[in-house]
Each structure stands twice: as C-alpha cells, then as structure tokens.
Design a protein around this nucleic acid. Structure first.
Lengths: 218, 218
DNA sequence: CTAGTTTGGATAGTGAAGCTATCCAATCGA
DNA sequence: TCGATTGGATAGCTTCACTATCCAAACTAG
C-alpha cells in the first residue's frame, strides 16, 4: 500500500508518518521508483506499536527508537531484547543525593538477594525502584522490608503468568512487542484497579454512608 | 524566610519559584512591605509536593494546580479531596473508538459490580482502566474476567493497607498529600518490582544458565 | 546617611519536543 | 496528456516549562 492508505488505516497523518520515517522509528517501504514506496502490514503493526508507546507509555521519540531497535535487532536473544526494551520504557529520574540512593540500593540488593532474583545490576528497573523508595522515605512513607518482599513475591507470580502467556510460535520481534505492550498495559491496568480500590476504601473509611448498614445509595 | 532562602532549602531556582507563584501552585508568602514577603515551612513542603508531582508523577502544571486546589480546599471532605486529587494525577488518553470503549466499560461495570466497589461513574480511573483494556484487546492480550477480578482483589488488599497507613492525627491537607504521594510512589514501586520480576523470569524461561541443571544451553 | 544589594512583581525571551506545512520534481492513473 | 499524488527535503509551528531582564522599593553594611 502507499503512504496515504497507511495513514488512513492507522489514523496517523501522512506528515507524521514521514516524520517517523525520518526519525527511523518506521522502516522505509520497499521503493518502487523514485516517487513511490510500498508499505505492508508490518508497517501498520509498527505504527500501532509506536503510537502505543508514545500515547500510553508516554515515551519520548528517542526511547521509542531504542525499543524498535531492540525489536529489530535479530542478533539479540529474546531475553536480551526484553532487557533492552524494558530499560528503554523505564522512566529515569535519579531522585535524591548519593546518600539517599546508596541507601535505596542497599535495600534493593538485599531484597533481590532475599528472593533470589537474577536482575542485572545495571537494570533500569533498579533505578526506578530506587526513585520510588527515595520518594517514600522522604515523605515518611517508607515500607518495611517485609512489605517490600510481599509486593515482590506478588509481582513474581504475575510476571511468571505474563511471560507464560507469550506465544512460543511467533516471530521473535512479535514476542518482544508482546512483552513491551503487555508490560505497559498490564501496569496501567493494575494501577487503575488500585486507584479504584483506593477510592472505594477511602469512601468506606472516611465517608460513612448517610444511610444505615453497609453501603448507602448514591 | 525570604525567597532566596526558600530557593536554597529546596534546590528550586528563584525564577522557577516565582513562576510557580504566578501559576498559583504556591501560595504567596505573607507580605511585609512592597518588596518583601515571608515564606514558611508550608512553602517548603508545598514545593516538595510540586516537584514530586512534576518530576516523578510526570504531571503537567495544570494538573498540579488541580491537586493543590484539592489539598487547599477545606470545604472538601477527605474522601472528596482524594477523589479530585486522584482524578488529577490520572493520565487521560481516550484510546479507541466508541465501540471499543463501550465494550471496555461494560467489562469494568461488571467487575466493579462483582467486587462490590463504590467507584464514581465519572472517576478517571475507570477511563484509565478502559484505556488499558482497549490496548490489551487490540494486541490480543485481553485478560479474562477471572484474571481481572484477581488483580482487583489484590489491589483492594493493598489499597486498604495503604489507607490504614494514613495517620489520623494530621491536618486534612497533609493527609491528601500523603495519599497522593503514596499512590504515585506505591505504583512506581510495584511497577518496578514487576519489571524486575519479569527480567528474572524471562532469564529463567528464555535463557537458561550456561551451567548444568534444568535446561540446555543457548 | 548613603551606596550598594536584594526583593517582589511584571514582562519578555528561550529551548526542547513533537509534530505540520510547504516545495519540488517524478510518476501515476484516468 | 494532464491534473493529482507521491517520496523526499526543508522550514515553520505550537505548546510547555522554565529563564532572563527590568524596575522601583526597601533593606543593610559601613
């Protein structure tokens, strides 16, 4: 298909598609003469990935580049590609001073050791967790080691299930997309449910219903 | 204290503090003559909240405004303020067409009904969840109702614990800050742990160790 | 009491990010 | 054949979150 059809099918404006081509997010179509190129379903798929990463994941163009590079790099193992992609979609803040971060990393090392995980020392998710711990301790909301461990074990159960859901009979690049989208959407889902649960619990705790028994009528 | 000291204590540049004052994120100090105003610990605290929301929560200035408005509005009940604040810190995407969203909302209604939650119909977290469900179904990653419910029940346990941790002997405004920061940091923590668990599990599943035990070598 | 600095407040300017718009010659389709 | 469309290149736009510059008032060091 040509660029206008690609645009119609994905809802992404033609100039934006051109922009993504320039930035290397989208591979060029197969050229048919100097004013014509042919795009396929791969491009539709890739465009969906890009829009998802940008709109839902809130990623910057540069980070999207890193993800698609990992998706496309056939020399990476599946595990290696997951790692690169995961690092790319992880927000980096670098909160706190050296002391605060060192303390956070000590807690993290102990936790990772305790649950027996194999997580690269330079994994960005360690930094992400460090950011969260710094923020919590600054606001006197520090979690206990037991608490942390409980959340970690919960996370492991879910992670195992998520990875088990990745089909084994698909192309490597598709599997990487699968994991990236699954991670972002899975987190959004879990976070949304948590907020909804908080709203419910906050109502119970701080705003007893005007009626009588358990819950009133709106 | 004067603005320069406020700047030093928080690490936020003076022009930026002035900008926040202009935007109404930070209340003006008590004026002492025309070229002098006095700032207090409240301002230090507020500034920390603002920076956290912006840097870690990734909120836009307008959304920070909504949060501080909820924090400051003494006419709101605690539950009401949580709701406003929660809505403000929730990303809005509006993914998918009417059909997709209606389907997602049907699933959500059934879920909320099933677990017996009281969640405002116009709560932004419903929209957030709808976004996640649309994204998942588009990528053939749709979760079963049982799955959703399991995650929801997990979320409820955590939400209850989070709210129980809110001290009851502090000012209302502090409690709102508590919940906002706790929500953002708690999510970041849970998400980071999940990514770490995924990295570990992915290693086990797709990249067996070069050693000897379970599986073969890559 | 002065001279220089600092302050609050107002206004204008900056830089990055993510698109959008315009041009152009080649070529496609009617 | 001839207007419309295309790929490709270049330039412009908009928003956002800050920064920088001014200015007169007032504080402070000597």
């Amino acid at each position: 298909m040509r660029i206008s059809e690609l645009s119609q099918r994905t809802g992404v404006p033609v100039p934006t598609i051109k922009y993504y081509l320039r930035e290397g997010l989208l591979p060029p179509g197969t050229s048919r003469g100097r004013t014509q190129a042919d795009y396929g379903d791969d491009h539709v798929r890739r465009l969906r990935l890009i829009r998802t990463l940008i709109e839902v994941g809130g990623l910057a163009i540069a980070d999207v580049q890193a993800v698609v590079a990992a998706v496309d790099d056939e020399t990476l193992s599946l595990h290696g590609a997951f790692g690169v992609a995961h690092d790319a979609i992880t927000p980096r803040h670098g909160l706190g001073d050296d002391g605060e971060r060192a303390a956070a990393h000590a807690v993290i090392d102990e936790l990772v050791d305790g649950v027996g995980w194999q997580v690269r020392h330079q994994s960005q998710s360690r930094e992400m967790l460090a950011d969260a711990l710094v923020m919590l301790s600054r606001s006197d909301l520090a979690r206990s080691a037991d608490d942390l461990r409980a959340v970690a074990e919960e996370a492991q159960v879910r992670a195992r299930a998520d990875l088990a859901a990745v089909p084994t009979d698909i192309a490597r690049s598709e599997a990487v997309e699968y994991v990236v989208i699954g991670t972002l959407a899975g987190e959004a889902m879990a976070n949304a449910l948590r907020r909804m649960a908080q709203e419910h619990e906050s109502g119970l705790r701080f705003e007893p219903p005007p009626g009588n028994l358990t819950a009133g009528r709106p």
